[in-house]
Nucleic acid binder design. Sequence first.
DNA 1: GTTTAATTGTACGGAACCGTTCATTTTGTC
DNA 2: GACAAAATGAACGGTTCCGTACAATTAAAC
Lengths: 212, 212
Amino acid sequence: MSSKSSQETQKKLGRPSDKAKRAAIVEAAAHSFFDVGFAATSIEQVAATAGVSKVTIYNQFGDKRALFAAAVELECEKMRGHFTLEAMPAGSIRNRLTVIGEAMFLFLSRPEMIQFERRIAAETVAEPVIGEAFLEAGPWRMKRAFSAFLDHASACGELDVPDSALAAEQFVSMCKGMGDLEQRFGVPVSAQDSAKRIAGAVDVFLAAYSAN
Amino acid sequence: MSSKSSQETQKKLGRPSDKAKRAAIVEAAAHSFFDVGFAATSIEQVAATAGVSKVTIYNQFGDKRALFAAAVELECEKMRGHFTLEAMPAGSIRNRLTVIGEAMFLFLSRPEMIQFERRIAAETVAEPVIGEAFLEAGPWRMKRAFSAFLDHASACGELDVPDSALAAEQFVSMCKGMGDLEQRFGVPVSAQDSAKRIAGAVDVFLAAYSAN
DNA sequence: GTTTAATTGTACGGAACCGTTCATTTTGTC
DNA sequence: GACAAAATGAACGGTTCCGTACAATTAAAC
């Protein structure tokens, strides 16, 4: 303990690990994992794509599962970032619901998101904690935000929502409708169908929860 | 063409293939495929579980993908069988909707069904036709049946549903709510939450589509 | 410049598994 | 019983991939 610095600034001797390489590895790994799945992903291919030696991957992550966990964490972090939900639109409550529904559907319909959900669901079987991490980073977070919006609208007298958590689920579920399922199973969903589902969801939602 | 029978009754010489063994193979394959996935399923393990030689599998199916397709077909056939939707309950329209919602949720919440959906979704990426076969055997079939029920109730003056296809999606989606997602990602769903979702779905549905 | 640690390339051991071949045995039909 | 096709067991070639080992190189910190 001669001239050790405090625990905060751990002095590292020798060559420090290259954080850029680490990022490239996780990025390449995420692409492969969510493209072809965990089992079909080869570490050697990830190393080649990231422009890195295979040994570096094992030095930094130690294990294939650990690399997978890091890739999931990266993607969840991206999701959290994209969930600002800023710029609440003005206009009637009908218009605001419509805009929110469209934004959510657009966000969830992106092919990368569909693919990500497929893989996470599949790997959740072997690693339950991964599924929960995904729910916490995405769906549950979104539910809380939208639920708060409904509570606010209720307090303003624009809606009459007794159970905002339940109502939030109902609205989102109706917006997704069967389109969610169809996309997950490879059938394209037309923009017309989506618009129809969202408009229908707003109609039903307002019929049930309108303030007047 | 000496004493050939008609094309109908193809005479088979020698030992006929054992249909019981074929069924055992597909059954074992389905279990493994939907338990651990396509890539992680070993033909040799399937053969051992089915009590059959590996060569027999290759003789009967020729390929791992073909065996997978047969397993999917078997499971889809089971789904079609379980979709009789008989015994339409009597009582108020509210009661009938509640019973239907509960039955659907129970059917879809079975662990085997969750697992089956996970795997089909994952393999749909490589084989899009499989996803469509699943949709046709299950969700689309159910949607048509429930849609017809809504049309009937409308004709009887019990409901006022302008677009039964849309309304069917809305009701089912609300019944599933977020429970569907949570189950797919490994989080258990309590019976209380399910009952609450179904009751809420009936409330909202009737608020929007009641006849009076 | 020295030290310390990260990175690289190559190679290896070991395992798993697909799909095939072949000789042998079983089993249903004629 | 004779025939023909199916089933079996074992072995093989080929491939892929994980994870490790080792010697050599590079790069930051002192």
